[in-house]
Design a protein around this nucleic acid. Sequence first.
DNA 1: TGAATTTAGATTGTCGACAATTAATAACGT
DNA 2: ACGTTATTAATTGTCGACAATCTAAATTCA
Lengths: 233, 233
Amino acid sequence: MTEQKANDNYNDITITTASDQVFVDMRREIVQGTIEQGSKISEPELAKRYGVSRATLREALNRLESCYLVERKANVGCRVVALTAERLIEVYQVRSALEGLACRLAADNMEPQEVQGLKQLLNQHLQTQRVKEGESYYQEAGDLDFHYRIIKGSKNAHLIHLLCNELYQLIRMYRVQMGMAGPRVSKAFDEHLAIINAIENHDGELAEMLMKRHISASQANIQTKFDLHAAKK
Amino acid sequence: MTEQKANDNYNDITITTASDQVFVDMRREIVQGTIEQGSKISEPELAKRYGVSRATLREALNRLESCYLVERKANVGCRVVALTAERLIEVYQVRSALEGLACRLAADNMEPQEVQGLKQLLNQHLQTQRVKEGESYYQEAGDLDFHYRIIKGSKNAHLIHLLCNELYQLIRMYRVQMGMAGPRVSKAFDEHLAIINAIENHDGELAEMLMKRHISASQANIQTKFDLHAAKK
DNA sequence: TGAATTTAGATTGTCGACAATTAATAACGT
DNA sequence: ACGTTATTAATTGTCGACAATCTAAATTCA
């Protein structure tokens, strides 16, 4: 298991209430595997652990359900989602379609300065990547930043919410728990570059195609880790 | 405003708890406009009206938020979503991508008998449509059935949930409140037929393209009503 | 002994009341 | 008279307790 630290709050939530805090905390623990996948969630137990009432905890559980990290059955309770190969495929099919759309829209809607910022970001990643070889956290964070910026560049609020707030935590959960390091780093960099170019040229169709392909490759990569992980047991 | 009756529970929810009931009831009222768009939701007031406690009502509100029918701000409260032209475009862009994907998957994964059932359904719609001219409810229900079956034919559980449980109620809200009748009936029928044929031939690419186009046309149709509606005021 | 039923325990769903925050009204000063 | 600051009222967030339901252990019967 790769070490993960701080700054898991990628989507910009402002924490005001107690349930906000519990939601963010639990989300991190689930994504990182501290609360392990497939495990049953006891409301009284966790409420005590976080020092809040059950009502507050249930509020957080509802939010976690909205981003697919827990599943609920009436009168039975919550369970942390189980990471299966089937679900990975399903989620990535959806992700591919949505992020492809985001990329196509971004080609039309991103401001020139946003595109420049994206380029700079990529250069930074190239450098830090050379320095911190094999440190998977920076890679994950960097890749995430890249995708987030493009998604937000689509300027479609509904799409942004769907991807950044709802779907991405589940995707992160797969990536973190499968352990994303491996030899795909340089390839991913080239793919990112090609996508930026397409966006800069306002070639939406190409940008969409490249992004879909990029995500498919990413899926294949995780799939490999998954099978490896399954074979070990 | 077109008259809407019974059977609004298109997605198969089994109602076990009290909050389930309130959720379904409120959802219907919001979609139909009984609780009007953009209006503030008073928790004490509605709790009294449905004869439940605030905790139960809040549970329902959380679920309504998950399917984009209400929006929440911390320490301020809930508001029914406002139907704007911008949001319509955003939602339909997402819908187009997702249902296009569903259609492509359906071309691979639907059983022959499911395809047959779809054909029969379309024939029924053709007949009932001739009889009940201008009755928009049957049209809406029919169209919905058609789309639902294809979505479920994708066999992608995540995609099915995303479309049927989360997104579709909002789409229905637009359709119902804008008043879907109009001359697009026969055209839509032809488009449906072409989609079925593509699915039957296992031509996923074509099926996806046709579905996307079909949805774009549907969007344009609603857009027109929307502008008309806005001009009236 | 094994399967079905009953019973006991624990968990979730629901309620009413209190605390914290916001929105609306009134008071105040310039 | 107008803008600003207090004060009040209402609303949301949170809590602890009770009721309904499920799970699992114990009992009964074949």
